[in-house]
Design a protein around this nucleic acid. Structure first.
Lengths: 151, 151
DNA sequence: TATTGTTATACTCTATAACTATA
DNA sequence: TATAGTTATAGAGTATAACAATA
């Protein structure tokens, strides 16, 4: 078996060819932000996905599970347990929209929790790129949106 | 049970309060790009993670599994099956660096496959934001790097 | 025929713990 | 004591298929 000399010393920086790739940087940045948000939301016993559903219902009273799923890219099948959990926690009520679909509405506790979610998210977002001018922040968000949103 | 009037008509756009959040846009953009890359790499029977390992070894002959893990944020435990798979496919060889660690080197087939990976990634990256000037692309990558890279 | 909500299930990705051998 | 590689396993998160009820 061949012997390889030890790779340089401890301080030798590894050449990471992925550093110049938009997709890779996006992935790392996204993972870091998501992990931070998950930690910040722990005190509310909500995952980032659950929190996003709560906010969406708050802004769209009467929205259905299927609509939420289409908006947030969550499978219909995966929306069921989320909506059930939020209902069990007395955060929302279901009202019959038509025979097969139900409109979702935040209850008082749901509105209060959504407010806390917004506060946590605001503090969370401020932790990243705090020195980025608001204008550039908006521009960045627009660029990212162009990557995935229907053209 | 209360009755809710149907939510507007089909064309009513849902108010998505997440549209203004950097973290959320990052997550959606990242997921879209990752899915596209996964599809593009299928023909090589490599996942995006496996491809990134291949490229990193190609650029850093003799790198160890642990170093790869630290560089790409892959757990040491999860590197083992990846390295084993690449070895079984005759893409790389292991050489003893010291008693406990092995340096990884691409074999001829690994170098050839890495070249194909680079071509696929180049085409993949060009599909997103094709009209973004190179300078702004670099700037965007720098911003994203600041989000996750050690300061 | 298509859609909604639901259940069951599978699959992937990632994380943790434990172990041996070596530094 | 700390690190490298490995195995086993657990937990999220996500995806698919099927079903009844309704449009």
């Amino acid at each position: 078996m061949a012997l390889t000399p030890p790779r340089d010393d401890e301080t030798a920086s590894i050449d990471n060819p992925l550093d110049t790739l938009l997709g890779y940087q996006l992935r790392r940045a996204s993972a870091a932000i998501l992990a931070d948000l998950a930690r910040a939301l722990e005190e509310l016993e909500l995952t980032p996905t659950e929190a996003s559903v709560l906010l969406l219902i708050g802004h769209n009273p009467g929205i259905t599970q299927s609509e939420i799923g289409r908006t947030l890219a969550i499978q219909r099948a995966n929306m069921a347990p989320i909506a059930a959990m939020l209902t069990e926690r007395f955060l929302l009520t279901r009202t019959q929209a038509d025979g097969r679909s139900q409109g979702l509405l935040l209850k008082r506790a749901g509105v209060a929790l959504a407010d806390r979610v917004r506060a946590i998210i605001a503090a969370h977002e401020a932790r990243f790129l705090p020195d980025l001018p608001e204008e550039e922040r908006q521009s960045l968000i627009g660029v990212l949106r162009r990557v995935w949103a229907p053209r």
